[in-house]
Design a protein around this nucleic acid. Structure first.
Lengths: 114, 114
DNA sequence: TCGATTATTCTAGTTTCATGGAAACAAATG
DNA sequence: CATTTGTTTCCATGAAACTAGAATAATCGA
């Protein structure tokens, strides 16, 4: 993932309503959710919802698939994983013995940090 | 990690200069870097650097430790890992068989998604 | 075709953030 | 104590983001 992509993704997620939308779609999984469904669940006016959905699509974090009158939104899991990889890339300059991170569930055996 | 903490962290990272600072500290590992050192490396004026460092500290992503006239900044790896865990928490409502994510390096065996 | 439903774009008002020079502050040094 | 060096705070300016009502576009059922 490029730096600019990471910034775009992080900026998009750094907002309460967009993070709520994204989390909703992450939990929903590959099935996704309809736009109106999301708006109902989060109590967002149409225009506001549409604005934030567009931001998330533009950041590459979700995808939109029109289905007749409806639009199905889904989390882009590859982008999410790419973002996570970007944040941890080359941590501690690749010297695990530095013990930069505690052994948490977010650490993987092959990581530089762990 | 609480939702508000995650938002604060994501907002802080969603900015080119702050992301550069954070990445620098992630690569530096537990040793950390001095404030002036960071400013030199990234070419930031003192005031601007101090502003962004404060934002990152406030978001819990880095820590500051005064050492005489110097201040050593370090990445808060636990916060970083907590943020990553927040993003992926309960993905696909805990049904791995949905195949919500491809098997990437960011996926761990125990994940709901993978 | 017509009306109802769903979603997006337009638009304007408000708020919030980023920048960096100058000044202030703190700690070490002579 | 005065000076130097490293860092932070103050502040004014300019830029960008958020919100949501109203208008618009697209689709479906009757």
């Amino acid at each position: 993932m490029e730096t600019n992509d990471a910034i775009a993704a992080l900026t998009a997620l750094g907002h309460a309503k967009r993070l709520a939308i994204f989390r909703l779609l992450v939990v929903a999984g590959p099935t996704g959710r309809m736009a109106g469904d999301i708006g109902d669940e989060l109590g967002l006016p149409g225009a506001t919802l549409s604005f934030h959905l567009k931001e998330l699509v533009h950041a590459g974090l979700i995808t939109a698939e029109p289905q007749g009158r409806f639009v199905c939104y889904r989390a882009a899991f590859e982008a999410m994983n790419g973002l996570i990889a970007y944040l941890t890339d080359n941590c501690c300059a690749g010297s695990p013995q530095d013990g930069c991170a505690p052994m948490t569930s977010a650490c993987r055996p092959g990581d530089a940090c762990c």
